[in-house]
Design a protein around this nucleic acid. Structure first.
Lengths: 117, 117
DNA sequence: AGATTACATGCTGATATGGGAATATGTCAA
DNA sequence: TTGACATATTCCCATATCAGCATGTAATCT
């Protein structure tokens, strides 16, 4: 078996840095393909291909406007990533360090005055 | 060129669901390889290989203990993912919907009484 | 030493990738 | 219709993947 397809889910789609760059630009608003080409300095076919992947995982929507195709961000597709990684926030956030300290304190106290058991 | 190596960064490493599963188990505490093999129901060599990738991107640390190798989560390696995806939280969070509503209201008011310009 | 346990690495094979270049499709304009 | 512009698709190719299986290495036990 090979690596999972990039279109399998948002995790795979977003592993490619240029696709993240595309989403970052689209976060500023709807844009035609050529805008992305210019802003990102990529070849047009590659941009179209990356957009296809992003479309397949639902991270962007398209809308035809004359001869242009306007792409729009659909950040909702990224929620699973956020949900997953959020659980690890505790590893680096000072907020959680303080919370842990408080919890540890409570635990000490509880052990001190022995409830039941 | 081919797809970027899985060891390129956390984004690529974590695109593989079994590697996320490994991290999820390690979130519960340090564990030897065989624990992961049993809990996840994967073949031992694959687990070792996945752990190698996770080690190379700094998502886990190892420690030798007798004949076992104890793996420990290092969630800090996941911070870039969190930082990136956090910006998109606005797309689905109701909190931001309310914030946007408030901002919109302010904007209306500002346009109404025309400050300078 | 020999056997066993715990883990890592090497090899094979099918597969999807992503860039480049060329070409196809679609829309508007003269 | 012919042409220009905007975008999508196709083909080629070097490469990295992941599973499965076999084997290597290190520590412990008898």
């Amino acid at each position: 078996m090979a690596r999972a397809a990039t279109t399998t889910d948002a995790f795979n789609a977003v592993a490619e840095p240029r696709r993240r760059a595309i989403l970052d630009v689209l976060a500023g608003g709807e844009r035609p393909v050529n805008d992305l080409v210019r802003v990102l300095g990529l070849a047009q076919p590659q941009v179209s291909k990356h957009l296809r992947v992003l479309r397949e995982v639902g991270a962007v929507d398209v809308r035809g406007e004359g001869r242009q195709r306007l792409y729009r961000l659909n950040g909702h597709a990224l929620k699973p990533i956020h949900d997953w990684v959020k659980a690890y926030e505790r590893s680096w956030s000072e907020r959680f360090d303080r919370l842990d300290a408080v919890l540890e304190e409570l635990k000490q106290k509880e052990e001190g005055d022995g409830g039941d058991e």
